[in-house]
Design a protein around this nucleic acid. Structure first.
Lengths: 224, 224
DNA sequence: TTACATTGACTGACCAGTCAGTCATAATTG
DNA sequence: CAATTATGACTGACTGGTCAGTCAATGTAA
């Protein structure tokens, strides 16, 4: 690149005058906005049509941008798709690791996690994202790998830890459960797919199903 | 490919001899064979690549047939896909309805069903078919409808009936389960998807998981 | 020979990716 | 500060390749 000697001063000035502290020029702002629009539009299109059937022209139109602009931000359709999904997953990983909502009982903790999941994933765009990953996973091993590493294995590990605690404390009677944390997650998975595929055939009360599931694992709640 | 002049005589003879009486001409036979080859090839390609990314040229090549031949059997790519999936599902529906393997306990019946499912679906081409339906369902509502009507609703109804019996007989303690037969199926679903997506990251012992699942619902087995 | 099945070259629509040109903005100069 | 020049983000018409679907020619059974 070239000498950024005076440039930096200018920038600093602009910052001092115009904006609330971030060191961004107008151009960079606009560029970032556009990138965000493209990401949003691409997400919608890929979810609606899948990778192969999605046209970059449609993404561009939806983002209010010329097709060429897409190629200023992404190498090609394929890497755009992969980067997109990675980007969408990352913030969710934070959620998984961050809040160990230390309620009293293991059941309460599991319930809180599961509710959060149902709330924020099932029946939302994120749910469709899960379906998209299931769809395209085999053809994009990089994505399947990433998803396994960042979400599945972590999620299962967290669940396994909770189960372990539950077994030690006596809340969970079935010790083999620790070997199959997938069993804890399975109904949530089914809920996500159901909402995405069959909701209009037969609406699913995921909350009620969750309660029944928890009753199976922790024993039915004593009616207070 | 050279002149098969005598070959035809041969064939006719073969038919007269070997054929078990069905009134099929040589032509009809060949046509049926070809159709079967196309169906097989198309299934493989669609499973491997999804609808949009599958090329009819590839299907034709794999089936050992010219592309035009496909259009003698199917109207176009789309209806071919739909018909294909319908055809693949139908025989499986028979299985669902047919064998009420009247073992003694409900647990044994559920276990038999689940094992059959794991054996014949998880980790096989049929499992990939399930994944394919999940993938393309939203873009082929006709297929999602068909699948819901013929497989999902029937499967759940059958499971619900079993659960009802289990509750009445006291084998199942949780009465709410009858409202959520999906809970019975969920681990099987997860097993199918797991095999298809994550088997190479972490192999899943679906049989063991099933046992744990059944123990959760029916209570742990008394060690004999 | 007739009637039907099969073929594969061909067509036209479609679409990912390119690039020469435009123009708002940033930097420099007076 | 205004005038001038440089930059690079952005555009969209264009290209080359791909692929669903067609059909005239050819092969095969009846």
């Amino acid at each position: 690149m070239s000498k950024p000697s005076k440039l930096s001063e200018r920038r600093v000035q602009a910052v001092k005058t115009a904006d609330a502290g971030a060191a961004t020029s107008r151009r960079a702002d606009r560029s970032a906005e556009r990138r965000a629009a493209i990401v949003q539009a691409a997400m919608d299109e890929f979810i609606a049509r899948g990778f192969a059937a999605t046209r970059l022209d449609d993404i561009a139109k939806r983002a209010g941008v010329a097709k060429g602009t897409i190629y200023l931000h992404f190498k090609d359709k394929e890497s755009m798709f992969e980067e997109l999904i990675r980007t969408a997953i990352v913030p969710f990983v934070g959620r998984l690791a961050a809040p160990p909502p230390a309620g009293g009982s293991v059941r309460d903790m599991v319930e809180a996690l599961a509710r959060m999941f149902l709330q924020e994933v099932a029946g939302t765009r994120r749910g469709d994202l899960v379906r998209l990953i299931i769809s395209e996973g085999p053809r994009f091993p990089a994505i399947a790998d990433f998803y396994y590493r960042e979400v599945v294995s972590r999620g299962l590990a967290a669940m396994r830890a909770l189960i372990q605690i539950g077994i030690v404390s006596g809340e969970i009677r079935e010790p083999k459960l620790v070997q199959h944390p997938q069993l804890m997650i399975a109904p949530m998975m089914v809920a996500v797919l159901w909402k995405s595929l069959f909701e209009r055939h037969a609406p699913l009360d995921a909350e009620a199903m969750l309660q029944t599931h928890l009753d199976l694992i922790f024993g039915a709640r004593r009616p207070t």
